[in-house]
């Protein structure tokens, strides 16, 4: 069976790096992006099984990424992470479209469990 693929988008390198390292250990294929623009470019070429994205980024932010993905690949699950924990309104609005939502710092173990659920592995 082919490896599941995960796209990670965050404007801070450390987040993508650590996520890549952690997911690769579990046998996933991971690509990381530092902004929404480059991620959307890549999405035109490749469908990922799960997308993990930061919410607040300069330029194309997490919400825009989410909308584009839902248009391109309605079945792809999106997990949102953000440093701003009290965005209740945003969470509410996103509830239907987002598979999961985590405030940063997010426990890698929980993120992994969420990815598994998104892939129907659990």
């Amino acid at each position: 069976m082919a490896k599941h693929s995960i796209m990670v988008i965050d404007d801070e390198k450390i987040v993508g790096d650590m996520a890549k390292l952690s997911f690769e250990q579990d046998g996933y294929e991971v690509e990381t992006f530092l902004n929404g623009e480059s991620a959307l470019e890549r999405l035109k070429e490749k469908r990922f099984d799960v997308v993990v994205t930061d919410l607040k980024m300069k330029g194309v932010d997490g919400l825009e990424v989410l909308r584009s993905i839902k248009k391109l690949y309605p079945g792809v699950k999106v997990i949102m992470i953000t440093a701003f924990a009290n965005l209740d309104v945003a969470i509410e609005a996103l509830r239907d479209d987002v598979h999961d939502f985590f405030p940063k710092p997010v426990k890698i173990k929980e993120l992994k469990a969420s990815v598994k659920r998104a892939l129907g592995e659990e």
């Binding site: 987040v15 650590m18 940063k104 710092p105 890698i108 993120l111």
Partner: peptide
């Protein structure tokens, strides 16, 4: 090492 965090955190 068990968390994803950024410099803001």
């Amino acid at each position: 090492g068990g968390y994803l965090f950024d410099v803001n955190y």
